[in-house]
Amino acid sequence: MIGRVMRLGQRGCDVLEALGRAGLFLVQSSVGIPSREGCYLWLRQMHFVGVLSLAIVLVSGLFIGMVLALQGYTILVDFGAEQALGQMVALSLLRELSPVVAALLFAGRAGSALTAEIGLMKATEQLTSMEMIGVDPLRRVVAPRLWAGFVALPMLTVGFSVVGIYGGYLVGVEWLGVFEGSYWSSMQASVDFIADVGNGMVKSLVFALVVTWIAVFQGYDLVPTSEGISRATTRTVVYSSLAVLGLDFVLTALMFGGFS
């Protein structure tokens, strides 16, 4: 019994210690003035985590918008309120689905790749040799990836929303025959730029920071063996998904839950 309590305490201490390491890691790698070289490294990572994730994010956005319109229509038509379809599609995308689904896709597509890449650099002693050359790998390897993720995910979220809304338009207006004017006007009457688009972007920024942070930290902190890399990659996806969904609840409660 005492042994079990001790193990639990030990485990708690380990978790706290890892959190402390992760926090220090975030501060050390993100604070500082970027150089010209740093900007170029950032650009390269933007290409890697942003541009290359675009296809999967946009295709998913299109399908989710189409499904939303289809499902929403069958419910709304029972109340004779199919004019409100645009409102329903836009609000569910902007407030909830775009930030969350884009972040989950991003964790799977870019986050796991970041972990594996940094982990492999650690396993092949590239990070150590960089340190020996006198270059801080936190600044050179980690910081550009962190900032690229932080910028790229909100952009991807915007793309997801736009494509999703047009996907809803395709199904709702072109296929199911909702009047085009009411699709857009019900949307414009109910969507508030600050409250809906703005809060969705805030969510997306928070998710971007958390997912990228988890990904690069797991890569930097892993045990440099092939098993360690595979475990860290899995951990990245699991932890970031849980963090995104949990934080989404907290943020939604704060933004739309009526505490103010």
């Binding site: 390269r44 541009v51 836009a90 909100p154 915007v158 929303s161 969507v191 809906d196």
Partner: peptide
């Protein structure tokens, strides 16, 4: 690659404009 990232950023800003003008009717 530079062009790709530039287009990506431009598309992001354009998307935000669409969300502002077309979707929330600013």
């Amino acid at each position: 690659m530079e062009l790709g990232v530039g287009l990506f950023m431009l598309a992001g800003i354009l998307g935000l404009l669409i969300l502002g003008l077309r979707v929330s009717g600013l």
